[in-house]
Design a protein around this nucleic acid. Structure first.
Lengths: 168, 168
DNA sequence: GGCCCTTGTTTTCATTCAGAACTATCTCCC
DNA sequence: GGGAGATAGTTCTGAATGAAAACAAGGGCC
């Protein structure tokens, strides 16, 4: 455009006009990083929890009893991450892990009394932080953001699935 | 106390009902991780670029000449990340770094011919991948997602700013 | 019983990140 | 003009994260 004559005369005007800040993956990554940092700090400072630990706590608190693999599905974490997070929670007396009586390989996760108390304390806090975020948007925007993200997630999962098939 | 009653008005009932998958920070983190992985793979396999490198490339390509600190602002990265990314780009002959004649501390980033060629090649690819993501949503959903994320970003920045003031 | 699958834990190695230290330069102000 | 302090960038450090594979222990099916 302006200095086009100086350097290359390539037909890449589209590339020159590219604005990173309007690029959805960028926006998404930045938003997620912002929000994650907000939550990480809050969980770490007030409860000594990492995000994986918080997720396991949340999902076990919801289902009372859960296998690690089921926890992994609900929290979108792989088994390694679930294993580490629950080991940490167990070591702090927040979670109890027992054998699955119906399957020798399986384990069952369950909150201790202490873990349940923490859960009851953390959830409202998380919702409050979420509400703080929601304050920046109108109700309609908030709802549509949630819907769009949910849809994007399923769409990404679909893309990733087809990608795996193609590879190799 | 498993499912003692369907609904009691106690605070911990709210905690029991908490669904991680409807929690916006969770949705956002999962979506961002999905999308980031998609792009990371693509950039790495096809162009040998990491995401920070791609961001620097994009923003320098747009402004022709840019200081590292300005690049950091445009890419939402700290100076350390910019420094590493540009060092890597320089070492591969994609970027040139020179002294700022008006300030001995400052540097100026600028694409080499090779870097400009890569830029012209990567941007359409990125837009194509973005379009693939957009395919999963209606046009209106896509637009509102973008708007909502932009708004969320500015709101987060505001929250973080006030947080910093309070601390210590 | 033998073979292969699944569940879950642990290890390893490379990458990543936040924080702080460090170099060099500029600006302000005495 | 010369220090104190701020700023631009780079480098270093230790912790966290990730992917991938090794490993242990059971289960299911022939």
């Amino acid at each position: 455009m302006k200095t086009r004559a100086k350097e290359t005369a390539l037909p890449d005007t589209a590339a020159d006009a590219f604005q990173l800040e309007d690029f959805l993956p960028y926006r998404l990554a930045v938003a997620s990083a912002h929000v994650s940092r907000l939550f990480t700090r809050n969980y770490a400072e007030n409860f000594g929890l990492t995000i994986p630990e918080w997720r396991v706590l949340a999902v076990v608190g919801r289902f009372q009893t859960l296998s690690p693999s089921a926890a992994g599905e609900w929290t979108a974490m792989d088994k390694v991450k679930v294993s580490r997070a629950s080991a940490s929670l167990v070591s702090r007396g927040l979670l109890r892990q027992s054998q699955d009586p119906s399957d020798g390989r399986g384990r069952l996760l369950r909150l201790t009394r202490k873990g349940a108390a923490l859960h009851a304390q953390v959830v409202p806090e998380a919702l409050a932080l979420e509400a703080t975020l929601a304050d920046g948007l109108s109700r309609a925007e908030w709802v549509s953001l949630n819907k769009a993200l949910a849809k994007l997630n399923t769409h990404c999962a679909a893309i990733a699935a087809t990608g795996e098939d193609d590879e190799e």
